[in-house]
Design a protein around this nucleic acid. Structure first.
Lengths: 146, 146
DNA sequence: ATTGAAAATGAAATTCGATTTCATTTGACT
DNA sequence: AGTCAAATGAAATCGAATTTCATTTTCAAT
């Protein structure tokens, strides 16, 4: 990692190492706040802006992407080998990935047809995960019976 | 429109009528600011928060949807009969729609496989429209020759 | 037509995440 | 060790989104 960053003209620091390591250890799409909390639990001298800047840096060097779900919070998604879409639960905010290779095949044709040069794709399904959906149904039943 | 809103428990006002009318007249996905500007050109006594609240209302009654492209500005997309995706130019911010019926067929299978109850889909292609792409290429050429 | 409750409005204030500023510290290279 | 650019932390700032509140307007019931 140190070498990788050096080739891009960035230095390695203790904070940066901690932030990078922690980011890739989390198995979900974290917000700045979430990662900051995790970092602070380990070293409470690290500043919020340092966490923020390093998340931005991770994106800049191509190791993650920002994800905007429209709830006002930016999340960071580690770039995996396979392009993927998101199942986003409107209730518990859980984010699950799924493969979108086939969708992207289709979308690149759409883009080509319109002389559009694609740089990235965003494919999201918003709704309710099975757990939250069950809870909602139970709630709805209670409402009608009362 | 007045009747439609009444059934939902909302009142019609002069401002609301102007805002609704103007919104549906615009042929693009407007931000609050853009619509506010248009409204002010017609009646400069209308407040920003009134425009904002009415755009929210238009969404609430199901006539539009919020669109978040990650540039920090929420846009409002009139709901059309056909579900559609967006081609979003990172340079000029132009937004073009395309049909996604086939993609959604596929995505609903994905959701079903995972016991996920879909409420909505978001399909976006980010990149450069043909005009901006040409400009970028020209710029890149100049850089290498100078 | 009058009235009263609920909803809507406009201006200003507030919220809150994102971003910048700036003084200080640190890392990498001679 | 010396130097300079990059990185850091705390605080300040930004800006879109949202809320507050006093006032006005709508609309249904008189």
């Amino acid at each position: 990692m140190r070498e990788f960053l050096k080739t891009k003209g960035f230095k390695m620091t203790a904070q940066r190492e901690l932030i990078f390591r922690s980011f890739f250890e989390m198995d979900k799409h974290v917000s700045v706040d979430e990662l900051y909390d995790k970092i602070r639990a380990i070293d409470n001298s690290v500043g919020y802006s340092t966490v923020w800047r390093n998340l931005k840096l991770i994106c800049k060097v191509g190791l993650a992407e920002e994800v905007n779900l429209g709830d006002g919070v930016t999340r960071y998604d580690p770039v995996t080998k396979v392009p993927h879409g998101h199942l986003y639960c409107l209730e518990c905010k859980e984010l699950v990935e799924f493969d979108v290779a086939r969708v992207i095949d289709f979308l690149s044709v759409v883009a080509g047809d319109r002389d559009f040069t694609p740089e990235g794709y965003k494919i999201e399904i918003q709704g309710f995960c099975s757990k939250c959906q069950k809870a909602r149904q139970k709630l709805a039943e209670n409402k009608t019976t009362n």
